[in-house]
Design a binder for these strands. Structure first.
Length: 474
RNA sequence: GGAGAGGUGGCCGAGUGGUUUAAGGCGAUGGUCUUGAAAACCAUUGUACGGUCUUCCGUACCGCAGGUUCGAAUCCUGUCCUCUCCGCCA
């Protein structure tokens, strides 16, 4: 979520920024937000002042009714006078009469019960008005929040401005592109030939975009996950094992909801969902907490399966395991101070790149333009591995700074050293890395003329020293 | 899944529907005292939002959401979570 004060103070500037993001619908909400915010504050001030008077009167009522030292005669008289004062909305006088701080002139006999009934009637009228006011506030705030939840994060000033993902700035590729003396095959041929990816049976079990890894396929994936986690640990990340099913609030916290509600899988009859990424669990881990600056940065890493419905990309990338409903990912995550988050983004991105380098697969960094930033990032780098079989760059990591966008939604705060005034912290996330696409890249880059696949050096210690996957299964 | 007991501030823990502050303690912070520390004593104490916004004022928050009432931590309903016992289970 954006800071509402920013929209209040610089609505035109915010609109200009949103224009860079290709989000027409969000743009149209800004005027509405400004209006609702003004209404909200005006109504709140008015109703809360009335509520203050009401609280005071109710306390005075208790004092009057429970005052053992006061004769019924005087109580009745005060109640009657207070009711009259309430009738002309003189709340101060009414409360002084009730709590005894203003003398009451006793001029006529008043019946106690009748006087209190009259007073309670006046208080009820006042209370009903205020209750209506609070209902109005709740309605306004609900509508305001609903609008705010649909406003994307604003781009960092260093992000190239463009609406087209074609314009993403590709850095110089790193690594050696292998020269093949045969035509490299795509993984959807290599996998079945080696009997390590079984598409038919995956589909039999669960439908399209599901697959089954078998033998070396499953083993290679497990090796990769261990390797990724060990790399992250070496880089100072604390490993987490998180729930894979979370409450819907968590998806609001990490900003998948409400906009991307149809990209996740829900649990029947429960308000819970399968993780589309570990980011959701980690973002909300410190929800509603206030950390100390000395705790930061917090670096976490978690391996989880990721479940995605991929409704938006129906029909695209249906071949192979490039885009699937279930995959394994190792996610790096940082909670930092606002001062350090951009430096940390560079650090995290280099760490992701380093994993590609260690696997000895050619890769490149993409600097994502404003129009392709997504909903929550202020700045984002993608890392792509080259896959000679399908002859394309495959996104294997995406590293983002969301600044305080998720922190504001999930209430992630910290006390700067020496103060007790909390601030929102910054959050960053980056894959490090995701398996099915890395498996694709390894199969396609390391395939040999005889159909075998060489196992990257760094993975061998995870597979008992084996150096190749052969068609005969050895 | 069944039965029961509970959810109160950073922590522990009181709290007959009212008579202006959620008692008291612990912890933390500041101060007094001290050569320094401890002890003792004094003071302070959360979050969010709003107000002519650093120290002032107000509103809301006693798991969460509703309800009853002039007034709810307290009464009612629902819900989530925790604990104990039983059942099941890796």
């Amino acid at each position: 979520m954006l800071n509402i004060a920013l929209i209040r103070e610089k609505p035109d500037w915010v609109k200009e920024e949103i224009k860079k993001l290709n989000d027409e619908a969000a743009l149209n909400r800004i005027d509405c937000i400004v209006e609702l915010d003004a209404q909200r504050r005006e109504t709140r001030t008015r109703i809360e002042t009335a509520q203050a008077a009401r609280n005071k009167l109710n306390r005075a009522m208790g004092k009057l009714r429970g005052n053992k030292g006061m004769a019924d005669e005087e109580k009745a008289n005060r109640a009657q006078l207070a009711a009259a004062a309430l009738g002309v909305r003189d709340y101060d006088r009414a409360s002084r009469l009730m709590d005894g701080s203003e003398p009451a002139i006793h001029d006529e006999h008043v019946e106690l019960t009748a006087a209190f009934d009259e007073l309670i009637r006046e208080l009820r009228i006042m209370g009903d008005e205020i209750d209506e006011g609070f209902e109005r506030i709740a309605a306004i705030e609900g509508e305001l929040r609903e609008n705010m939840l649909w406003i994307p994060n604003l781009p960092h000033s260093s992000v190239p401005v463009s609406d087209s993902e074609e314009a993403n700035v590709a850095h110089q590729p790193v690594g050696t592109f292998r020269e093949f003396d045969f035509k490299p095959k795509p993984h959807w041929e290599l996998g079945p030939a080696l009997d390590i990816i079984d598409f038919e049976r995956g589909v039999k079990l669960s439908g399209s975009r599901y697959y089954l890894l078998k033998g070396w396929g499953a083993r290679l994936q497990r090796a990769l996950i261990s390797f990724f986690l060990d790399q992250a640990r070496t880089n100072g990340y604390t490993e987490l094992y998180t729930p894979y099913i979370v409450h819907s609030e968590m998806l609001y916290g990490s900003a998948q909801f409400p906009k991307f509600q149809d990209t996740v899988y829900g649990i029947a009859d429960e308000d819970k969902f399968l993780l589309p990424t570990a980011e959701v669990a980690i973002t909300n881990m410190h929800r509603d907490e206030i950390l100390e600056e000395s705790d930061l940065p917090l670096n976490y890493v978690a391996h989880t399966p990721c479940f995605r419905s991929e409704k938006a990309s129906a029909g695209r990338d249906v071949r192979g395991i490039k885009r699937v409903h279930q995959f394994e990912k190792v996610e790096m995550y940082k909670l930092t101070t606002p001062e350090t988050s951009y430096d940390e983004l560079e650090v995290m991105t280099r760490q992701a790149e380093n994993i590609c380098a260690l696997l000895d697969i050619p890769y490149r960094r993409l600097e994502i333009v404003t129009g392709d930033l997504g909903f929550s990032a202020t700045k984002k780098y993608d890392i792509e591995m080259w896959s000679p079989g399908c002859a394309e760059w495959l996104e294997v990591s995406s590293c983002s700074n969301t600044e305080a966008f998720q922190a504001r939604r999930a209430m992630l705060r910290y006390y700067p050293s020496g103060t007790r005034k909390s601030r929102y912290l910054h959050t960053l996330n980056g894959s490090g890395l995701a398996t099915p696409r890395v498996i694709i890249a390894i199969l396609e880059n390391n395939q040999q003329a005889d159909g075998s696949v060489v196992i990257p050096e760094v993975l061998r210690k995870y597979v008992g020293g084996a150096d190749a996957i052969k068609a005969d299964g050895s």
